[in-house]
Simulated assay, not measured.
Amino acid sequence: MEEIGRYFAVYLAGATGIWKGIPVGIAMGLTPFFTATFTSLGAVSSALLVYFSGEPFRKWLMDKYGSNSIAHKQEKFNNWLQKYGVAGLGLMVTGLLGPFISLMIGMLLLKDTRKFLLFLLLGILIWSFGITYLSTPIIGLVKGMM
């Protein structure tokens, strides 16, 4: 039962972001595979929850940030989007800023969010497994030095 609690804790931490789930999994002594898996499952499920809340969430964002400030930022964003595309937003920004911020940017500024969602979920998986498998040996090396 204690083992299930550790997996659930990593899942919940991953639901708040991949940069939170991975350290929790490593601190709890889970293998890199299970850490990355439950972190990505948590991030994917929370991203899908926010995505399928859909229009009410989008209206809330528009009310909070206003359409004038978004229109100004959309001009800057379009230049970046022309260079990297929807795939770049979904794959790169997911790891750099986190899934929630990427999803909010995509929902506010993109018209077709289905393709973006696919790249966002793929980005979550790639970043979760990549960061976990890169950080585990580094942490082991640092522990060995101390």
Rank of each mutant, 00 (worst) to 15 (best):
G17V: 08
F38M: 09
A27S: 06
G21T: 01
D63A: 12
V86P: 03
W80G: 03
L125Q: 12
I124D: 05
F100T: 07
T132P: 03
G140N: 08
T39I: 08
K111E: 13
S102G: 11
L41K: 10
G90I: 11
A87V: 12
W80Y: 12
V10D: 04
T113A: 01
G144H: 15
E3T: 15
F57E: 11
G88L: 02
G14M: 06
K76A: 04
M92G: 13
Y65D: 04
G144W: 15
L108D: 05
K73A: 15
I126F: 02
K73Q: 15
K59Y: 09
D112I: 12
K115E: 10
A43M: 06
G123R: 06
I22E: 00
F38I: 08
E75K: 15
L117E: 07
I101D: 00
L110E: 06
G85D: 02
P23K: 07
G66Y: 13
M145D: 00
G140E: 07
V10S: 02
K64Y: 14
G54I: 01
S69E: 14
F77I: 01
E3P: 04
S45R: 09
I26F: 12
K73G: 15
F116T: 13
L103S: 04
M1D: 02
T31I: 11
L96G: 00
